[in-house]
C-alpha cells in the first residue's frame, strides 16, 4: 500500500517537474523560432555590411553592429579587471565584519537595480559631470558599472568555492598570501569567473536603457572614429525602427533582432570556449 503510494507521489512529482521545465523551454524556443523565421529573409551581405538607407527602412545595420561590439568590449575591459580585483579583496582580504557584510549585500542588490537608473546615473556622471558627452566612452562605462555587480558576485562565489584546505596547505609550505591566491585560488576559480563574465556580456549586449542617454545615436550613417564619438547600437536601433519610424518592413525589424541574438550568442560562445580551455587544465 505504502509502496504504491510512494510510486504515485514519485510519478506526480516527476510530471510536475517536467512540466515546469517544459514551460521554460517552450517560450524560449518559440521566441528563437519566430525571430529566425521572420528575420532570415532580411539577412544578406548588404544588410550586414551597409549603412541604413531611406530613413532606416532599407540598407543595412552595419554601424549598429559595430557600435554594439565596441560598447560591449568597452564594458568588459572596464568591468572585468575592477570586478575581479574587488572580488579578490572581498573574498580573500577583507575581514568578516558588519561593514563588509553590508558592502557584499549592497553589491548583490545592485544587480537588481533597473537598467534605466544606470542610464540616468551614466548621464549625470559621465556625460555631464566628466564632460565625456554622449560617446562610446560614456556608454561603455555605464554598461560596465551595470555589469560590475554581476561579475563581482559570480567571481566571489567562484573564489569562495575553492576549498579552504588548499589555501592552508599552500601557506603551510611557506607561500605568501598573494602567491597562494595567484597559484592556487585563481586558477581553480577561473571558470566560475568566466561564467560571471558571460552573464555580464549577455546583459550588456541587450540592454537599451543605459545607452539611451549616454551614447546611442538615432541615425548615424558613418562609423565612430574614436571613443568620444556617438554610435548606433543594435538594441536601440531595434527600438527605433520598431516604434519611432513608420512603415519599416517587418523583416528588417526581425532581421535586426536576429543579428542581435546571434551576436550575443557568438560572444557567449567565445567565452565558453575560453572557459572550456581552462577547465581542461584543471587537475581535480
Amino acid at each position: 500500500m505504502s509502496k504504491k503510494n510512494s510510486q504515485r507521489t514519485q510519478k506526480i512529482a516527476f510530471s510536475l517537474l517536467s512540466l515546469a521545465t517544459l514551460l521554460i523551454v517552450i517560450p524560449v524556443g518559440l521566441i528563437v523560432i519566430i525571430i529566425i523565421q521572420k528575420g532570415i529573409p532580411a539577412i544578406n551581405w548588404q544588410f550586414l555590411s551597409d549603412v541604413p538607407r531611406q530613413g532606416m527602412r532599407a540598407g543595412g545595420i552595419f554601424p549598429a553592429i559595430v557600435g554594439t561590439v565596441y560598447l560591449v568590449l568597452g564594458a568588459i575591459v572596464f568591468a572585468l579587471p575592477i570586478g575581479l580585483l574587488a572580488a579578490i579583496y572581498l573574498s580573500e582580504y577583507s575581514k568578516d565584519n558588519y561593514l563588509t557584510r553590508i558592502i557584499k549585500l549592497a553589491i548583490v542588490n545592485l544587480a537588481g537595480v533597473p537598467s534605466v537608473v544606470y542610464g540616468l546615473f551614466g548621464l549625470a556622471l559621465f556625460v555631464v559631470f566628466f564632460k565625456f558627452g554622449a560617446s562610446i566612452l560614456s556608454g561603455s562605462l555605464t554598461l560596465g558599472i551595470m555589469i560590475l555587480p554581476i561579475i563581482i558576485t559570480a567571481s566571489r562565489e567562484a573564489l569562495e568555492s575553492v576549498p579552504y584546505s588548499f589555501r592552508e596547505v599552500s601557506r603551510s609550505l611557506g607561500a605568501s598570501k598573494w602567491q597562494t591566491i595567484r597559484h592556487i585560488v585563481l586558477p581553480n576559480a577561473i571558470s566560475g569567473i568566466i561564467t560571471g563574465t558571460i552573464l555580464g556580456l549577455g546583459r550588456a549586449t541587450g540592454e537599451t536603457a543605459p545607452i539611451l542617454f549616454t551614447v546611442a545615436a538615432f541615425y548615424l550613417p558613418q562609423l565612430p572614429a574614436s571613443i568620444f564619438d556617438q554610435a548606433m547600437a543594435l538594441p536601440y536601433h531595434l527600438y527605433v525602427i520598431s516604434t519611432q519610424v513608420p512603415n519599416v518592413d517587418e523583416k528588417v525589424r526581425y532581421g535586426t533582432a536576429l543579428v542581435l541574438l546571434v551576436l550575443a550568442l557568438f560572444m557567449n560562445l567565445v567565452a565558453i570556449i575560453i572557459r572550456y580551455q581552462f577547465r581542461k587544465k584543471k587537475k581535480w
Binding site: E168, V169, I184, K283
Partner: peptide, 10 residues
C-alpha cells in the same frame, strides 16, 4: 595534515 591534501596540480 590529517587528511591527504594534495594541491590541485600534477
Amino acid at each position: 595534515f590529517a587528511l591527504p591534501l594534495p594541491l590541485p596540480l600534477s
